[in-house]
């Protein structure tokens, strides 16, 4: 398996490629799918950074648990409940 500087360079190249993809897709009109595509690419980038640069790929249980709890809190709880308010304004207007 590749490791060391070579691996980091490859991940970095992949990130730059995804950055380019973000840029290109933003220029194409896909309607609502622009957001979906942008978010999907953002997730990919995050995954790469977390797995390789932050070494979560070879982390122990404690690191994984910390990461998972942060993920659940920020993405699920903060996003879902806040959006629950914004969408709820339409569902139960008045």
């Amino acid at each position: 398996m590749t490791s060391g500087p070579r691996l980091y360079a490859m991940v970095y190249a992949a990130l730059l490629f995804l950055l380019g993809a973000t840029f290109v897709i933003a220029r194409v009109d896909l309607g609502a799918f622009n957001t979906v595509a942008a978010l999907a690419i953002a997730w990919l980038k995050m995954g790469l950074v977390v797995a390789y640069f932050m070494h979560l790929r070879d982390a122990d249980r404690l690191d994984a648990m910390l990461f998972a709890s942060g993920f659940v809190m920020l993405l699920f709880v903060l996003l879902a409940l806040t959006l629950g308010d914004y969408f709820g304004r339409v569902w139960l207007a008045g």
Partner: peptide
């Protein structure tokens, strides 16, 4: 404790659903 913050916003324009 992380799931209840909206109780500070009952009268500040938050949706009735939330």
């Amino acid at each position: 404790g992380f799931l209840v913050w909206g109780h500070h916003m009952f009268v500040s324009g938050q949706s009735a659903f939330a």
